[in-house]
Amino acid sequence: MRLIVHNMLTCNIKGVINKFPLRIEAEKVIKKEVDFNPDFLRHMLAKIEWKALVDGARSMGYTELPDHAPDTERVESDESFLKKFHHALLELHLEEGSLVCQETGRKFPVDKGVPNMVLREDEV
């Protein structure tokens, strides 16, 4: 699971309020190289919850991201920022671990890189 997906997911148990972001418990993190596509990154930057990305990256051992995302206009020229963003968003993989709901403590397992977001009978 890459952080781009982590940034989209919540715990959808009925009645839970504080459900985003899910805390990452990393057991095994791997890095896979992905082609750098600045257009895609700029498009994604506007959609991303920055703090969740920064925290997610840190819990997977990557601390290079700035606390605040630069302005969308400035990003155009800032290659070194885009490279870091690219790495955090697409190249870090959580291979084994869990996504943990901050409110309920529900663990969504990530196994072989695939998060399992389906709820149990009593949670639906």
Partner: peptide, 17 residues
């Protein structure tokens, strides 16, 4: 970019996405 297991009837997308 991702494969995940989820239920389209109860999608786990964050609000605001």
């Amino acid at each position: 970019v991702a494969l995940l297991r989820m239920d389209n009837n109860l999608p786990p997308w964050r609000s605001g996405l």
